[in-house]
Nucleic acid binder design. Structure first.
Lengths: 340, 340
DNA sequence: CTGTTAGCGCGTTCAC
DNA sequence: GTGAACGCGCTAACAG
């Protein structure tokens, strides 16, 4: 019944060697002064017994646990969170690392506790993620524990991974412009708070800045800008409903996220207007709904998985330079923009 | 620079005691034959130095790591996955445990590797989760490693946590019936494969069985049943479009998941029909879209977080009986059912 | 060349 | 209250 775990000593015994010899062989130390024969015996014994080193015991000596901590303010709610995690998992698995997950809800106390809990388990490094990208105070970690900020920035000289929102913003405008839209383009979701950068996220400010820059470069201007605080379907619906009460209809809607675009679809449909025949729509995020909508919503995707993967790659790399690492936002073309 | 971690020996030295004494005091062993004074000194020293025990070292002696493995076939895609994880995290945090996450993509090889990786790190137990609940072969673990199946069943005598789909199915029918619907109720999403239980999931069969049982108990029958293989908006749209081409319109739609219901909304809207005035709709899952829709979709929720938490609680409890533990599916009443 | 012994890392536990 | 051994694997020093 007591299926005791196979230890290095078991392997060594079976191979007729000391455990130190077995250790050196299994770890392939460069100075292999051990005989080929001995090496074969050890490897065979290990295989036969199904030996797996006890990571806890090993980590006591070497300062590595092959474990990465992933601290996030939120894990559920959006696909964004789970995408980041999925990407991180994939990259970790590649490197034979495993991920220790912790959620903080954004609460500094839980944050501190989470970090402590992870350090207690000797994680090699920590990915510190936020769902609405923002400026954070990077936690202080022991020298041997690396840190990568994910979807967050910090003024201290740290490493962070962010979506390339500026280029994303430009891409959205380009889609519209390249399709021939030059007038009647309405921006949905702008607010003073974004401009002042006290909005929900720092990257969203860049998203907006990107659209403005591209518009300007092309000599275009927004017909109007609908200020919306909460980027949810209901708010998008209301805003577009109001828009449609005006004498002249918009020709294209640039929505700052998908839920807003969804609200726009609803308002348009209820007014008997059609996407994209009457109004073109582009948006950001590539949420699940973007593919559910009829016609499919063309949107600039948040590259969650790529970001998550990038973060652990940087963590494990070690030689990577500090600063911001931008991940490209893919353009997902569906059917919500009409060629004019 | 070298901020060496504070060890038990440091604490003992500062308190002027042996590390064994410090260990006993900090762990509050029952046989406290240590002086009150000594105890105070140790606690103070620990606090002053900010001592945290090294979990790896401890786990070498006691057979506990305060770490739980969570293996899932998918972590991204649906809110379901992240909900399970979130719930598990919350319960783990309560018990001062931490979660080691692994994803397998349903691939048996990766599954085996994930289990090995977790066992290498001496997890106290493993939660084995699947996103589309199904029969799995429970992995064999060492005696000291507990296992709980999450959203999965196994014929071996194991512990599993599942949504109470049978009651959920009944609840959906009850909502319709209690609102006065007796005729023209159409079931969307049935298929032969569900009945034969070779469909995507075992619990979904129970969902359907629950609706049938409740219909029968109330002396009702479905007007018709639309067989749909893939439960996505596009398929729901097509099915309902066809339905609306018939001479007599349905009065209520019982959709077996939310994306189908979304497709139904789209088809109805495009035909100029209104929910719930013309057609009532109930559904299952409480996906994000359920709250996005206009009017809000009444749906029987998948209790992800509750399930995840339950799984961890059972794992840590140890005295919990084997078998299926059903978690109630909350009824989320919005505005898609009309009182007739 | 081929290998072994001893001791470490950190906290727990038992005999004294 | 303490010293010493132990859990498991790694590594520096040492020996045929």
């Amino acid at each position: 019944m007591t299926t005791r775990r196979v230890t290095l000593a078991d392997v060594a015994r079976r191979a007729g060697l000391s455990s130190s010899a077995a250790s050196m062989i299994l770890n392939g130390r460069p100075d292999t002064r051990l005989s080929k024969d001995a090496s074969d015996r050890v490897h065979r014994a290990a295989a036969e017994l199904g030996y797996r080193p006890n990571v806890a015991a090993r980590s006591l000596r070497v300062d590595k646990t092959q474990t990465i901590g992933f601290i996030s303010d939120t894990v559920a709610s959006t696909r964004f969170a789970s995408g980041l995690i999925k990407g991180a998992l994939a990259a970790a698995e590649q490197a034979e690392h495993v991920i220790l997950l912790a959620e903080t809800g954004g609460d500094p106390t839980r944050e501190t506790e989470a970090i402590a809990a992870l350090l207690d388990r000797q994680v090699d490094g920590i990915v510190f993620a936020t769902m609405r990208s923002r400026e954070v105070v990077a936690p202080v970690l022991p020298d041997n524990t690396r840190l990568v900020l994910l979807n967050a920035t910090s003024d201290s000289h740290s490493t962070s991974v962010l979506p390339d929102e500026e280029r994303g913003g430009r891409a959205a405008v380009s889609l519209l412009a390249d399709a021939g839209h030059r007038e009647g383009i309405v921006l949905l979701g702008h607010s003073q708070e974004i401009e002042r950068d006290v909005f929900r996220s720092t990257t969203v400010a860049r998203r907006l800045a990107g659209t403005r820059a591209e518009m300007q470069d092309r000599g275009l201007t927004f017909e109007r800008e609908e200020s919306i605080w909460e980027w949810a379907p209901q708010q998008g619906f209301t805003a577009v409903e109001a828009l449609l009460a005006e004498p002249v209809l918009p020709r294209a809607l640039l929505c700052l996220n998908d839920p807003l675009a969804f609200g726009a679809y609803q308002a348009l449909t209820e007014r008997g207007l059609r996407v994209p025949d009457d109004v073109s729509i582009v948006s950001f995020d590539n949420d699940e709904i973007a593919s559910y909508l009829r016609p499919g919503l063309t949107t600039i995707a948040l590259p969650h998985e790529g970001m998550g993967a990038r973060a652990v790659e940087l963590l494990l790399d070690g030689t990577a330079p500090h600063g911001e690492h931008l991940v490209e936002m893919p353009v997902i073309v569906r059917a919500s923009i009409r060629q004019v």
